[in-house]
C-alpha cells in the first residue's frame, strides 16, 4: 500500500468513526467487499502460487536431507533443524554472510548511493548535451544483460592483456583473483548506480529552488545547503532508494559470473554460496535451509527501513 493511500484510508476511517456510520464508508470505489475481493483474487492467487507456496516449500525442503542426485533425491529424510544448526556452525556460511554484508555496504549503501547522488547533483548544472550523454552511459551499464556485462568485465580485469592492466601499467595483475571482493564491489557500483541517479534526480527536482536561493543568500556553503535544505526534502527518497538497492544487492547473483565465488570462497556471497551448495554440490536440503535464512534476513532489512520511513512522519 502506498503512503498516500494509507493516509487516505486512515482519514476516511476516522471520518466514518466520527459520523458513527459503518466503516464500510471507506469503500470509495463503490465495489462492495465481494467484488473488491474478486478484483484482487487473481493477484492473491499469483502471490500464493509463486511466493507463499514456494516459500513454504523451501521451509519443508530445509528440514530434509534432500539432494539433487543419489538416494536422498529419491527418498529424502526428515532431519529436523540439522541443516539450520549446520549452517550456523558452518564457517563457510558465516564467511559468506560477512562477504554479503561487505558487498551490500560497499557497493549499494556507499557505492551506488554516493555515486548516484553525486551524479544527480552535478548533472543539474551542466549543459543538457553533457547531461544526456552521461545519463545514457550510466543507464547503459544498468540495462545491458548481465552475461554480456560480465564478459566485458572479465576481459577488462583479466591479467592476460586486460584493459585495466594496460591503463594502470600493472601487467599481469589478476584483479579477480587478487582482489575479488573489491572487484565485485566496484563492478556492482558501476552496474547499479543508474537507479540511484534517476531517483535522486527526480527527488532533487522537488527541492524548491527558492529555499536553496535563500540559503545561498544567507551565506550557506554547498555542504550546509545539502545538509539543511536538500537532505530534509529527500530523506524519504534516500531511505526508499537504500531499501531497494540493499535488497537487490543482497540477492544479486551476478558476481558469480565474474568469480564463481572464488578463489577458494573469497567472493562467495550468499546467493552464490547457495548456488554452489545446492546445485553444484547437490545439497538441495541444505541450500533450502540457507535460502530460508536469507529470506528472514531480507524481511529484517525491509522491516528496518519501513520502520525508519514511518518514524519520518
Amino acid at each position: 500500500m502506498t503512503a498516500t493511500a494509507d493516509r487516505k484510508v486512515r482519514s476516511n476511517r476516522e471520518a466514518g468513526a466520527r459520523a458513527g456510520g459503518p466503516v464500510d464508508s471507506i469503500d470509495a470505489a463503490g465495489l462492495g467487499r465481494a467484488r473488491a475481493a474478486g478484483l484482487v483474487a487473481p493477484a492473491l492467487v499469483l502471490v500464493l502460487a509463486f511466493l507463499v507456496v514456494p516459500a513454504a516449500w523451501t521451509v519443508y525442503l530445509g528440514v530434509t536431507d534432500y539432494r539433487l542426485t543419489g538416494i536422498q533425491a529419491a527418498n529424502p529424510e526428515f532431519v529436523g533443524l540439522d541443516n539450520f544448526t549446520a549452517a550456523l556452525a558452518d564457517p563457510d556460511f558465516r564467511n559468506s554472510l560477512w562477504l554479503t554484508l561487505l558487498f551490500v555496504l560497499g557497493s549499494a549503501i556507499v557505492g551506488q548511493t554516493v555515486a548516484g547522488f553525486a551524479l544527480a547533483w552535478t548533472l543539474r548544472t551542466v549543459p543538457k548535451l553533457v547531461r544526456s550523454v552521461v545519463e545514457t552511459l550510466v543507464l547503459l551499464a544498468w540495462i545491458l544483460p548481465s552475461s554480456i556485462v560480465a564478459f566485458l568485465w572479465v576481459a577488462y580485469l583479466s591479467g592476460d592483456g586486460g584493459t585495466l592492466n594496460a591503463m594502470l601499467q600493472t601487467s599481469g595483475t589478476e584483479w579477480l583473483l587478487e582482489h575479488p571482493m573489491a572487484s565485485i564491489i566496484v563492478f556492482n557500483t558501476w552496474r547499479g548506480t543508474a537507479f540511484s541517479m534517476l531517483l535522486f534526480s527526480a527527488a532533487l527536482g522537488a527541492v524548491p529552488p527558492s529555499q536553496l536561493e535563500s540559503a545561498r543568500l544567507a551565506g550557506a556553503g554547498a555542504f550546509a545547503q545539502l545538509r539543511d535544505v536538500v537532505l530534509p526534502h529527500i530523506r524519504g527518497h534516500v531511505l526508499t532508494n537504500t531499501l531497494l538497492i540493499s535488497l537487490w544487492t543482497f540477492n544479486d547473483f551476478s558476481p558469480y559470473l565474474l568469480t564463481a565465488g572464488g578463489p577458494n570462497h573469497a567472493s562467495e556471497t550468499l546467493p552464490v554460496f547457495i548456488y554452489n551448495k545446492a546445485l553444484y554440490g547437490g545439497q538441495l536440503g541444505y541450500g533450502s535451509a540457507i535460502s530460508f535464512i536469507m529470506l528472514l534476513i531480507n524481511l529484517v532489512i525491509a522491516l528496518f527501513y519501513v520502520r525508519l520511513l514511518r518514524e519520518r512522519r
Binding site: 459503518p22 464500510d24 465481494a34 507463499v52 507456496v53
Partner: peptide, 27 residues
Amino acid sequence: HGTPRQAHTRPLRRTVIAGLAASVALV
C-alpha cells in the same frame, strides 16, 4: 466493530480459500 461487515467477509474468506486451493493445485 460493526455487524454489517460480517456478511461481506465470508465471500472474501471463501475467495481466499479457493485461491489457495487453486494455487496449491497448480503447483
